[in-house]
Amino acid sequence: MDTPGWRISGGSPLRDRLPRVATVARVIPETSKVTTFVLDAAIKARPGQFLMVWLPGVNEKPFSIVCPDPLTITVANVGNFTAALHRLVPGERLWYRGALGRGFRLSGRDILLVAGGYGAAPLHFLALAARDSGMAVRVALGARAQEDLLFPGRFAGLGCRVWTCTEDGSFGESGLVTDLLQSLADQHRPGSVYACGPQAMLQAVAGICEARGIPYQVSMERYMRCGMGLCGSCAVAGRRVCRDGPVFSRLPPGS
């Protein structure tokens, strides 16, 4: 196993990658549907990486890392598994594998983050890292309605300039976050754009950035099974979202 020239890109025979247990330290309601769980754990991770969170007897699903220390995830209650997560109270435990996947690469002095709905989760970690390296961070947050708008206060608290919009006009400007991106991109010419959200939004972001020659990275969300780049469940246009992504510096063609 020690053959010279080996770059182990997966696991090591000397070290397992089995789930680790963590205790829920704090539960923070974000919106009517979304809750943040702060764990009594800390991990090494890059912004954009994710965890496979396991609840024994329930399931195991991917979640963006919102903060690596203390390890934090933010969960929208959208199905059986997330409902089970939402029932956790401080002192109870969950298990996680990770950090997994390829994260964002930070570059530029002045960056713009674009979040559609729950896409704000990985961008929060990115904003933390960008702030720590002294970058100017602008954030465009969009959601269907006010109750779906995630983290406006958290981003502002990190010293980011925040713009918000909702599709129904219930908060901030009325419209799509990509409209906001268009005007911010023209006004401020960000060095880089980082986006996470639904596929249609990411496609629009790619189009807007490519038309203006602005480098961008997008974080994609897909149904995942192994999370280890083996099973192919999350493959999009030949790229494995779990291992080649979830962050891509171009949207995979045909995705």
Binding site: G11, P13, R15, D16, L18, M52, N59, E60
Partner: peptide, 12 residues
């Protein structure tokens, strides 16, 4: 359902 694949240290 998941978990479906694990790295247990000396194999999968």
């Amino acid at each position: 359902p998941n978990p479906t694949v694990l790295d247990w240290g000396s194999g999968l």
